[in-house]
Design a protein around this nucleic acid. Structure first.
Lengths: 251, 251
DNA sequence: CGCGCGTTTGAACGGGCTCAAACCTTGTGG
DNA sequence: CCACAAGGTTTGAGCCCGTTCAAACGCGCG
C-alpha cells in the first residue's frame, strides 16, 4: 500500500511497505462506542445503542506506521493498546517528536483540516487502534454524539500539547527529563500500571527529539538523576525512588 | 488603563474579575454565520439561514484579557480584528507564549475539555472578537454545521501549533527569529496587508517567550539580520529586504 | 519632568552540542 | 548455536552559543 515513509537519508524499516496489508489478522475484533467512551474518559451520558455501534480495530507491529504525513484523511484513531510516537520532519531532515500517544490517546486529528494528515505516527510497540471513520464522524444524521466526543477529546489533546510545550528551552535539560519521567509515570498510573517502575517504550533518541535535546544530553540527565539516588535506570526500565525530589526539579 | 501585565510571584491581574462585564460597549454589533465562515476560511457549503444567524461581538482594548485561565468555558471566539497572545504560566512564574492569534484565529478551544480555559489570552492591540457561545455549539438540534466548522477550525489551530513547535531548541536563534518573521509576514499577507513591511504588534519579550529565548537574544538576532541587509528594523516596524535570504535561514 | 518600560549592546560564564570511542543489546544469517 | 552487523546507550573532551548581569538610550505616559 502507499506507505511511503518519510526517510531521513537512509531507509529505517523497509518492511513497513507491505505489512499494512498483512496487519489485518484473522482474529480481528470490533469495539463498541461504549469502549470508545471509556478509553477517552468521556463523561458524557451514554445513549441507547452505544453497545451496538461497532468500530473496526487495527493491529500494528512495532515499527509500522499508523498514519503517514500527506496521506488523505480517512478518520481518527483511538489507541487501545501500545505506544506510538507522533513526529514531524523538517525539510532538512530534522525531526521533532510531538508526543507519545498511549492507551486512550486520540490520533489523526490534525488531518481534518484540508483532509490530509500533517504528521507521521509510528508504533513503538505492537499496537491496537480503534478506527473512527470519517464517514461516521461527519454523517451525523441521527447521532452526533460521536463527533461531540471526538471534539471534546481533541481539546484534551491540545492541552497535553500545551503542557509538553513548557518543555522547551531555558529549562535545564535535567529538569526537563525529570518532568518527562513524571509525565510518563502519571500516564502509566492512569493506565493502571505501576507509577514507580515502568519500561520506557521509546529510545533515548525519541526522548531527545521530544525534548529538543540530543541523545547524549538525555543519557547524561539520566545518569545525573541516578547519581543523586532519585531514580534507577536499567536501559529502558525506570524506577522512581524519590518522587518528591523528581517533582522538585520541575521548578 | 487596566493594562496590568502578567507579573510573576505577585498577584496576576486582579481587575480582570469585574472587567469582563464592563467590556461590553454600547456600539456593539453582530456578526452572521456567513462572516464566521469567511473568517475561518471554511470551505464547506453555505446553508440557508447562514445570514440570519447572529453572533455577539466583543470589543477589547489593548491589554485586556480575552480569556483567563481557570475561568469556566463559555464558548469559542474568532478574531475579527487585532492581535492577541496566548500564554500559559508555570507555577514558578515562567511564562510561555503559545501563539499570537490574529484575524481568523480561533481561541478558547482548550476550554472544552473539563469546561475550563487552560491558558490566558490577552489583547496586544484593540481587538474585535466574535463569540460562539457554548450553548450554540452543542445545542445542535437542527444545525450542527456550526460545530462542524469549529471542529474543523480547531484542527487548523493544532497544525499551527505543530509548526510553531519546530521553533524549539537546536535551531540557532537567528534562524528561529527569521522563521518567526516569515510566519508573521505570511499571516499579514493572508490578511491582505503588505508581507514585506509590517508593524509587529508584540514586544521583543513576547517574541522571546514564544521562541523560548531571552529578550536580548531576539534583539541580537534582529541586529544580525539588519547587518546582513536582510531586513530593516525600526522598533516595531519590520521591512523585509531579502526574502530569499530569510527563507534560507530556516534550514 | 521623571518614572517605567522597551530596546540595544557589551562582557563573561556555563550548559548543551559536536565529535569520538567504547560497550551493550538485538536481530539476522550462516 | 554462534558470528556478525546494526543500532542503542554511556561517557569523555573541547567548543560555541545563549544566558546572565550590567549599562545606556529612547519612548510614552502620568
Amino acid at each position: 500500500m502507499l506507505n511511503v515513509q518519510a526517510m531521513p537519508t537512509t531507509a529505517p524499516w523497509q518492511p513497513t511497505a507491505g505489512q499494512l496489508i498483512r496487519q489485518i489478522g484473522s482474529d480481528e475484533r470490533w469495539s463498541t462506542l461504549k469502549e470508545l467512551q471509556s478509553l477517552l474518559r468521556y463523561d458524557g451520558h451514554l445513549q441507547a445503542g452505544s453497545e451496538a455501534e461497532l468500530f473496526q480495530r487495527r493491529r500494528l507491529k512495532a515499527g509500522q506506521s499508523a498514519l503517514v504525513m500527506g496521506q488523505p484523511f480517512d478518520g481518527l484513531y483511538v489507541v487501545r493498546l501500545g505506544t506510538l510516537k507522533t513526529l514531524i520532519t523538517n525539510v532538512d531532515g530534522g525531526v521533532h517528536v510531538l508526543g507519545f500517544p498511549m492507551k486512550g490517546s486520540l490520533i489523526g486529528f490534525d488531518g481534518i483540516y484540508q483532509n490530509t494528515y500533517t504528521s507521521d505516527v509510528v508504533a513503538l510497540t505492537d499496537c491496537d487502534l480503534i478506527r473512527i471513520p470519517a464517514t461516521n464522524l461527519f454523517a451525523s444524521e441521527n447521532n452526533n454524539h460521536l463527533e461531540h466526543m471526538a471534539y471534546w477529546a481533541s481539546s484534551h489533546e491540545i492541552i497535553q500539547e500545551q503542557e509538553a510545550y513548557s518543555l522547551t528551552r531555558s529549562v535545564k535539560s535535567e529538569a526537563r527529563v525529570a518532568r518527562f519521567l513524571l509525565t510518563m509515570s502519571h500516564r502509566f498510573e492512569d493506565m493502571g500500571w505501576s507509577p514507580n517502575r515502568f519500561i520506557l517504550p521509546m529510545t533515548r533518541r525519541d526522548i531527545g527529539h521530544h525534548l529538543s535535546v540530543t541523545v547524549e544530553t538525555v543519557s547524561r540527565a539520566f545518569s545525573a538523576l541516578v547519581q543523586q539516588g532519585i531514580i534507577e535506570v536499567d536501559f529502558r526500565e525506570i524506577s522512581i525512588l524519590e518522587r518528591d525530589a523528581l517533582c522538585h526539579f520541575e521548578h
